[in-house]
Amino acid sequence: MDGPATGAPAVNGATLGLPPTQTAASGMPLTHGLAGLLLLADSRLPAGGHAHSGGAEEACRTGAISGPEDLARFLRGRLATAGRVAAALAWSACEAAQAFSRPDKESREPGSPASSGQARVADPETAWRLLDAEADARIASPAQRLAGRTQGRLLIRTARRIWPSTALETLARAVPDGAHHPIALGVAAQAAGCTPDQAAMAAAYTSVTGAATAAVRLLGLDPVTVHRLLAELPYDSVIAEQHDWSALPAHAAPALDLLAEQHLRTEVRLFVS
């Protein structure tokens, strides 16, 4: 093949020798991190997510979800509680992974988000265990903790092969049985080049998509109707900058806890959780 190593004729600014036309205030291209975000949020990411319903299977079985209206309320509630907590954990994990990967600690501006988290005061492995303990304290149900760790372990295994990074390695070492999924997601997001906001968005989004898909499969709902519900959810409302790990959101969802524990005790089930 002739031409440049990249193959097809290139039309982007970099190849034409032009400066990137659009940049955010940070100096990063506006598309920075988006490819990583798309890959991480895609349900086709081979990390085991397809087998988790986030309580939706049990809710369908007991009749708590029987149609699109119930499902909409289920998803909204899930996003406002578990989704908010997941987003905060992912945000914090991504930010800490960024801080650890920054070679020069002095270059962090005082008061900037990067200098805030507990990441600064501890070595990475201690910090990961601390953040993981903060996740544990927010998940009262053992069934949900197990599902979260399983998904986290599977994601780390997958992510470290796709986006090898020091932070993923230290996380895997620090929490051998698997860190909670949002933490794994935040660290994977950093490895994939995402910002903490993008990591939080991926966590918020994946906190509801598994349940939505499960309901489509289990109840035969119209997938377009369900995707409209997903499109209307207020993801932005659960994403915020985080500073203090002990003060991260801790919104509980007692019904999800009950569903998770009942699900584990139900004989006939298609989903892991």
């Binding site: 809710a59 708590a64 998803l75 509630g77 899930r78 903060e134 002990s246 801790a250 509980a252 019904a255």
Partner: peptide
């Protein structure tokens, strides 16, 4: 928020009267 021996034990928030969560089969049913 409860900590035991310096480690987080339980942290939980409840929001009642939030249109997003009220009546949700995921939260209070």
């Amino acid at each position: 928020d409860a900590t035991a021996g310096g480690r987080p034990l339980l942290r939980q928030e409840f929001v009642v009267g939030d249109p997003e969560a009220d009546g949700s089969p995921a939260v209070f049913g």
